[in-house]
Nucleic acid binder design. Structure first.
Lengths: 210, 210, 210, 210
DNA sequence: GATGAATGAGCTTTCATTCAT
DNA sequence: AATGAATGAAAGCTCATTCAT
């Protein structure tokens, strides 16, 4: 609380305010992106952030806690990008979710890799349990929207997990390739993948009404 | 599974001697599947296999070497399943690659997860460099085949990375879901995903000639 | 118990304000009894008491200081129980000191164990120096009384340390046993130990004048 | 096993053979005696023994494991001292157990204090669980012997825990005193305490038949 | 009186790896 | 081919304590 007050005051004054918590997060993100979560130690974070070991544990549960905090931020930034307005047509919404993902990931390749690493590690590392649930939770809203499109007869009546896999799987697979492999065909990848996603789930025999 | 097959063959030949090397691989695979590669230590392998530390290093370069050996076997077992005969049509071959993957992974969910973990860790862990190359190498042959189909006018002229992503991405995405999420729609998932893969790359305006 | 009494008294006087200091002591005592002094951290006390770290150090020198404060109270509560009136006979006084100890310890087994832990730790932990002296000091008065009984010819002329050991050692040894081991013979243990204590130091050939 | 062979060979040659395991135990005992178990860190042991951290954990579970190993040795040394021949009279046996304890503890005051510290800490420290059981186990045989004396009508029919407390409690209490406090009356303390122990449990009205 | 951010030395423990036998 | 003692750097984490507010 004292912290808050101090920071707000600082913000008002010059907008700088490093803030121990912030500096730790920034440093950790940089390291995670650069060398991966597994290869980053708390000591690395300490050195890169200038904070003391004690401060790190004062603000976070540990390495997993830092990852969780970062992920929360990252998810926020990402989902802001891929969401069409609520009254959008199925086609617009679905294509937007794909192009949103591809563009965000293309612009933040490190973050995409990091999320992938965390997803994988969370399966076994108890420190990443929270991260695992956070990643799993992300999909609730999208599933509900898809079911509405099904009800309206705009898309194929697929179980949501299948539909999700069919629509976004190609994008994930493409983004997971090393950057060099993605060079050929990279220019229009977002549109191409979005079109494919829509083609894969649209109700056959309907006119496109973009 | 590949392991099993090999061992059974060996047993038939001379009826004995599991072999230190084999016992180490078996134990390591079990541990990797159960708790993940990262969470398994050489000491765990030693205890589970009954071999001594020295023996492990006698046969393998280290933990990464064991993973490499296991991966080679796993890749063999998997690609054996997904390969259509060389003279197969594009449709048959492509659908076979998808159903092969899905069925193998559904039957060996642990192995699939393990490969995913290794792929992710190999990006940063030098011990897994070999594993990384092995995983990357897996795709050479398939790319060549796809280019032949392109030349024959049977499939869309997509860059191979894109084509690969479009065809197999959905299957990967679906398989990566936790088992419970895969329940709905699981029955015909292999066929459904295979059909989708073919629909996504087939040359439009051509008749299907299954 | 001493605590309880004090708090109740305070409540009667002004009917309010548990007081930070009190809440810290209460929480710390609970933790010390439950998991031992060594296994309790200041952070634990902070969490259990609701006080801030700063408050704890405002009222006490540190963990050792808290223990010292608690011990003072505990000693008070205990010696209140074991003291016969000043004009009591040697037999009454000595028996009272034993039954007092046994009954208090049986009623407060946690406190007894805690005192034992503190006594042991105080031998090496500088933070517990005060505690060590407090524990040692407890015996001054009793020694003087014994010497008076010696002078009056009522008890054997033993050096006080030896007399103390002979009289109270059995009670300590019995109380230090785990509760289950104490079950057999527990009913009359206080009287039995008190009789033994008196028998061990009384001047032979004298009539008992209870 | 290779170890064993090597050590035995060394023993045959010159009887020296430091032996890593031995050197660790020796160093740890020295430190425990000097500054207590709680105040000794693994790093201290490492430095004092010349072994590496890894070696310590190769041979022992941790600090608790070292304590357990030391205790086993200590118990052996001590119980060798206090045991009368099996056909001894009750009086001889009981007095021997007391004088044995007192003399051993007087000769090894550090070990006595250490055992006391361990007993106390074992109540809460999970690392010392084994130590706790080992300490508790020590008393089985003595109890059985006492019950035989009861059956023979040589001693009072006390529950063993009570009898044990009455007989050995004074000795423990006396030994637990700081060395200075023990000075007065120290000369014949062993005999005095042994006589008191016998007097406290002997069947009244019987002749002493030492 | 009261807060809680900040400290950093120090702790126990794990681990892949080496090597003499 | 096989052993297992030995290594030591490095890891994650705890903790009593200080101090500006």
């Amino acid at each position: 609380m004292a912290r808050m007050a101090r920071e707000e005051a600082a913000d008002m004054r010059d907008g700088a305010a490093p803030g121990r918590r912030e500096s730790i997060l920034t440093a950790a993100l940089g390291l995670f992106l650069e060398r991966g979560y597994a290869a980053t130690s708390i000591a690395d974070v300490r050195a890169a952030s200038g904070a003391s070991t004690g401060s790190i544990y004062h603000f976070f549960t540990g390495k997993g806690g830092i990852a969780h905090a970062l992920l929360t931020e990252a998810v926020a930034g990402w989902s802001a990008v891929g969401n069409a307005p609520p009254d959008a047509s199925a086609e617009v919404a679905i294509k937007a979710s794909v192009t949103g993902l591809v563009r965000w990931a293309a612009a933040n390749p490190g973050q995409f890799r990091l999320m992938d690493e965390l997803r994988s590690l969370a399966l076994h590392d108890p420190d990443l349990a929270e991260v695992g649930t956070a990643l799993a939770a992300g999909q609730g809203a999208a599933g509900a929207a898809y079911r509405r499109y099904v009800a309206a007869g705009h898309v194929k009546p697929l179980a949501w997990p299948v539909a999700h896999a069919v629509m976004l799987g190609p994008a994930y697979a493409w983004l997971r390739l090393p950057a060099e492999s993605r060079k050929p065909g990279a220019r229009h990848a977002a549109e191409l993948l979005a079109d494919a996603a829509w083609a894969a789930v649209r109700m056959p025999g309907r006119r496109s009404a973009r």
